[in-house]
Computed example of a mutant assay.
Amino acid sequence: MSFRLGLTGSIGMGKSTTAALFAEQGCAVWDADAAVHKLYGPGGAAVAPIGALWPEAISGGAVARPALKEIIAQDAGALPRIEAIVHPLVAQDRADFGRQSVAEITVFDIPLLYETGGTAQMDAVVCVFVAPEVQRARVLARGTMTEAQFAQILANQMPIAEKRRRADYEIETDTLSHARAQVQEVLRDIKVRLADA
């Protein structure tokens, strides 16, 4: 059975880049955001149940994320209802991927790993981090959200200091070469653990 490594962090911390570095080293990688994208896409399993509650959130047979963001902004009760639909579907997708993986180490890229209790299914957790000012600059440079939206996302996530405290491993994503070296070190350590098991 594949070793299950949870990969987490906060928005703009370099999770996607770090996931790619793990893939570069031969790990299988499951991406929670990509799974949600698939569920929201045409024919995705989340389209019908979300459409039943908010028909205005559906466009062209898919969930329109801007419309969903608008609904969440206007209705404080919307997010928990959306999560009640999406989280079980994402969990099923993750479980299916894990069962089918033949890699020695499978990485699960999950932004809300701690918040959703996903650590129970992991053999170890790695948390990526970067200085708060670098995080803020990265997120705002994308041009996809306002300062207020960024603050709202941070408010909904566990503080990065707490994620780092709970994690088995940490990777600082200040530079690509530094992150790659730390990924290699994490994998070396896991392989030693597996050899000793």
Rank of each mutant, 00 (worst) to 15 (best):
Q184T: 02
G61I: 04
A179I: 07
P42N: 03
L194T: 05
E172I: 08
M122I: 03
L21H: 04
G60S: 01
M145A: 03
A32M: 12
R142M: 08
A62P: 02
A91S: 09
E24P: 01
S10D: 15
A103C: 10
L154D: 07
Q74G: 15
A120K: 04
V107P: 04
Q152D: 12
A57I: 04
A195G: 13
R65A: 06
T119L: 00
Q92N: 11
I71T: 10
G44S: 06
K191C: 04
P88K: 09
D174M: 11
E147Y: 02
A151W: 01
I11Q: 08
I72E: 12
I82P: 06
H178W: 05
D75M: 08
L7C: 07
R4T: 09
R166I: 00
E147L: 09
S2Q: 08
T173F: 07
D33S: 09
T106S: 15
A148P: 01
E170N: 15
L21D: 04
V186H: 04
G41Y: 02
R99H: 12
L113Q: 01
A151Y: 01
W54Q: 05
E70Q: 14
D75A: 14
D189V: 05
G41K: 02
N156H: 10
A151P: 00
L154H: 04
R142T: 07
G117Q: 00
V102H: 11
P49T: 07
L53G: 06
A57F: 03
R164K: 15
E104F: 02
F129M: 09
A78E: 14
I72F: 12
W54K: 06
Q182T: 03
S59M: 00
E24I: 01
A161E: 14
K15A: 10
A48P: 00
R94T: 06
F108N: 07
V192S: 06
I105Q: 04
R99A: 13
M145Q: 11
A137N: 14
L79H: 05
A195N: 12
T17I: 10
A23G: 13
I82V: 15
I110P: 03
A195E: 14
D196S: 11
A76R: 09
V128R: 08
M145D: 04
V107S: 04
A91P: 03
F3L: 13
G117R: 00
G12W: 10
L7G: 05
D31L: 06
M1D: 09
P80L: 07
Y114H: 01
V125M: 02
I72G: 12
P111G: 10
R164A: 14
A73K: 12
A124R: 11
V107A: 05
V134G: 10
R142V: 06
T116L: 03
D75Q: 15
A181P: 00
T144R: 13
R166E: 01
A64F: 03
P159N: 06
A155W: 01
S177F: 04
I153K: 08
A137R: 14
D123C: 05
R142H: 08
I110F: 04
R164S: 13
Q182F: 03
A148F: 00
R99V: 08
L5E: 09
F3G: 06
T173H: 08
